[in-house]
Nucleic acid binder design. Structure first.
Lengths: 133, 133
DNA sequence: GTTGTTGCAAATCGTTTGCAATGAT
DNA sequence: ATCATTGCAAACGATTTGCAACAAC
């Protein structure tokens, strides 16, 4: 139980993938990006590292319509999922009043707000009327 | 593409499972409950029915820390997930101001707020100090 | 009779695990 | 030398799909 974690190239690669990410990543994406720093990296190791990072609260699971994603634990914030390009974005700010929504007797420990729709790129691409002649 | 859907016992069973549910159900739960109305029902058929119901906007996917769940499309509301008993609850009400959180140029089409913590039952069970002698 | 639907089993997807080899300490 | 960690491949659970039998129309 009292394991002594070691500092390996693979762990560093996975951490670096998270550090350089600008938003949540799927396990596959973490793998792809981390392989740049540790070419032999296996997908199983990615999952193992993610699990370890979550246990250490370094990384958090993000549920999304796209599937499970992970990101470095940051100050509190929420996400926007683009239903067109399937990318995830972090958004600043929070909504007030969420704590009072739970029924009597419920103990609210955390909350997650996710917005879905079209990101700026996709919104522009699918609504070009303004630029059309 | 112009398929003519048929009214079968299995579809009715799945619909009924949703109608009688008081909150989101996992595919497994839908199966268990629908089998009461159509004993021979197979899990594959459950998934096919759910997919069809979603396509018709009769049912919605609910992402949750517990896993994917489904529920009859109702008036807008949100959810509470109990991290102890792994049940999902619907909560009334909504938070104001979510639409303005998205960055410039983003088109917000929907939002989902989920609260996590302990439901009334579990909160009471894990905090019995008040009743302890 | 036509054709959408079913249950089954096989296939697939994402994730986890057993294990012998490897590498950090 | 010790023992955490690795990559691989097998195992796993959830979901999907091919297909022949079936049932709604």
């Amino acid at each position: 139980m009292a394991a002594k974690p070691r500092n390996t190239e693979q762990k560093r690669a996975v951490c670096r993938a998270f550090e350089e990410a600008d938003g949540p990543l799927s396990a596959q994406l973490v793998w792809e990006r981390a392989k740049a720093f540790a070419p032999s990296l296996g997908i199983a190791t990615v999952y193992r590292c993610i699990k370890e990072l979550i246990a250490q609260d370094e990384v958090q699971l993000v549920e999304s319509p796209i599937g499970p994603m992970y990101e470095r634990s940051p100050r509190h914030h929420h996400h926007f999922f683009c239903s067109s390009c399937q990318r995830a974005f972090c958004i600043a700010g929070c909504v007030p009043g969420w704590k009072s929504l739970a029924p009597q007797g419920f103990k609210v420990l955390s909350h997650e707000l996710s917005l879905s729709g079209l990101c700026a790129d996709c919104a522009q691409a699918t609504t070009p009327e303004k630029n059309a002649p």
